[in-house]
Design a protein around this nucleic acid. Sequence first.
DNA 1: TGGTTCAAGATAAGG
DNA 2: TCCTTATCTTGA
Length: 861
Amino acid sequence: MGRWIKPLNNPPRLSETDLLSAQARIVLMSLERRYGVKDSLWSFNNSEICAYNAGNCELQESQCSLLGSSTKVKQEPITPIRSSECINNQKISTDNHDSYSTNAYFKENKDYHKSQKQVMDLPVLAPTPLVSVTKHPTSAAYSSEAHIQQFLHQHVDQYEKRRQLAASDVSCMKNLSRATNEKSEDKLKAKIPSSSHNAKTTRDDQLLIDITSLSPQEREIISFQLETVGEVCLMVVYHDNSTSANVSFYQLNDRFGQSAKGVLVYAENRMMLFPLVVSDPSLIKWCRYVLNALLCKETTRKVVVNSKLLVKVLLQKLNFTRQSEVILWHLEDPAVAGWLLKPDDPPCSLKNLRKTHTTFCGDNYNYDRTKSDSKFYFLAKESLAIMEGQRILLKSYSLWQLFLHVEMPLVPVLALMELQPIRVDMPMLLRYSDMLKKNLQKLENQAHEMAAHPFSINSTSQIRQVLYEKLGLDKHLSGGNGMILTTSNNLKSTSEAVLVQMSAYHPLPSVILQYRQLAKMKSTYIEGILELVQDGVVYTHWDQTAAATGRLTSCSPNLQAVPKTSIVIKDFDNSIIIGQESSEPKTVKICAREPYICGENNIFLAADFQQIELRLLAHLTDDITLRTIFNSLSHFDVFIQLAAKWYASESEITNLEREQTKRVVYSIMYGVGEERLAKYLKATPSTAKEIINSFLVSFPAIQHFTQWCVTFARQHGYVETLMGRKRWLPNITHSAAQLRSQAERQAVNFCLQGSAADLCKCTMLRVEEALYNKSHLRARLLLQIHDELVWEMPSDQLQETCEVIKTVMEDAKLLCCPFLPGLKVPLSVHLTHGTSWARLSPQMLRPPDVAAFSVSRPCST
DNA sequence: TGGTTCAAGATAAGG
DNA sequence: TCCTTATCTTGA
């Protein structure tokens, strides 16, 4: 597999027939993909094409005609390969645990035994095979052949699409080949080193082939060669000869802005530099075609460190007209793999990965660091070696499917999201900033008056002095609940909870609270955004590998944390707003989401999963009461239903009872203490305890579930989600009760939050696929806020897009594929739309059946 | 003395 | 001694 084809070592004279063979090859390769046949070898001999090991693939008349009339096809079936044996050319392991290969790997890795810290260098291998615990619903051992077949079937459309794409580009290649220059062959011979050369000769100056220096025909040979290669490594090369592969993973966002020189493709001891900035449009077109073909090709492993960056650079520099094509790119990123293997302490650079995930070492590092091409060479070699080691680990921990079918396909989706401009209303931001500034000044002056002297209101230590030493407000607190202390220094806390309590005795705490609220709003959500706005738009960044639970995070700016609710400023002095005539004080509202607006003729659409973690709890615990609530067709508020069950009352549930139920449910789900719950509910700890107990009696499966999570974690050292994501919790058996119980809560939390994260990531993939398949729809995914997705689209496509999105998002079977057959409870999605992020109103779908909508439906949540 | 870096505390989000 | 994040400010 992956050998360079024969003509390379001794390049023959290229004839028209050879080039036709190249076109034929594209068609045959696509057939290979179509039928899921792997390891096919094709040989070219003048006008004859031989296909070995082509299995049961049959050439249709129409496909033969594409090969050219002078081409004969000889088919020699050897062993048919069942398509179920491979997805993306990876055999799916039905064993959950390959102990031999893992242990063999660990024996070679000296770092393995220093793993007793809170954050281990390498996960501890489960003492027993996972199979023994697959009875529990969180197990991701679902991979029956029938199911994989179904998965393949659903993706046949995509293969078909790609086939057509390849065929349409044959004509483009044909035109290029006309420009053949016979003299170029000798030049090529000199430029392209032979694959039989050993490592020593590959370090010479010819190691790197610059695509711009090649003739069109020579380029054809390159593209020809890339078709057969089994494994490549790609990286972005910048003008200063640094690469995207060896920067610290934290610097990635900075790197993107720098000028990229080209994309380096390493394959079988050779490297090619594809230019990104050239004046020749046909060369750019050619690069786009060849790289796209390579990245779509499922039989080639594409190892890319920091893959999102590469996808972004390619998208921008090569002008992909059909941008969403990139959702078909399937890469392998050692940085993402490293995070899946060590979610609590992910590797922060390639150097870091090198230590734990590879045996590639020794004299390989003795290269000439002053020569950039030998640096590229070893970076690529190293990336491939690291990925190889990680592949073994991922498979032995049953993380491979998650990596292959969720995390890596998500990379292009995130790259697209990062390139989407989000429009902001600059004048509104400036107006808000001004309003907040004036009001903050007013509050600060008030605080100074109350303290009888000026102090820095932002400083916690100075607030501590004023409140406790000067005003002595802590004496009111020492009675019942005792003083809350800060976590590390045991200082008296000035947190919100404490200030709220003290506000009953003195006006200063509430002024401080109000100041903090406005200050946070101003610095983070107004001025913080203003700094990042360019040309009226803002771009956010998505980090796939930041959260141990598998959630996505957003930064610079963090749009996941923009407050939903607006803050109210009472007695606001209107005269300070520029252009306002009235000087009457009044109440104003500031909503941080208000300045995010959509483009002209566009509209935002938000799709929100309803109570996703609660539904997952129902699925995972298999609790009959919870399942009945979610499965019933009634659209009544779920918390009211829960409260009704809990209080065992037929009468109407009050709002207070509903709120209590909601709090109790989430608190108990995540293992809250009695005292904390008592504070939430403003009740005594003993009452809180009663509430917890009575809830657990009503829903015994929940307690069973939390206990199960803890037991599982103790037995195996880790817990896992719906789709097999794992988190190692070494403290679960710690002798210190505090650390142990923290790990226990983390175990429960991870099972639910992590499963929800899995499901939301799959949702993004399936929705983007569905939208891609309806090519006339122009919805662009802008945001993911854990359980909510936000798109921007032309207003006239709202209805149709809503239907597509809702259908996909409520199809649990599709979302869970190929990990599990579906969920035991239905998923419910709430759609809203509007022209500002702050004001989104419910979207009513066209009623499929009028009768179904004639029943009045109370609103949920 | 002025600038940088880092940890801690507080507060926003999501469930 | 609910969990998971990002960001900002202070103060050493």
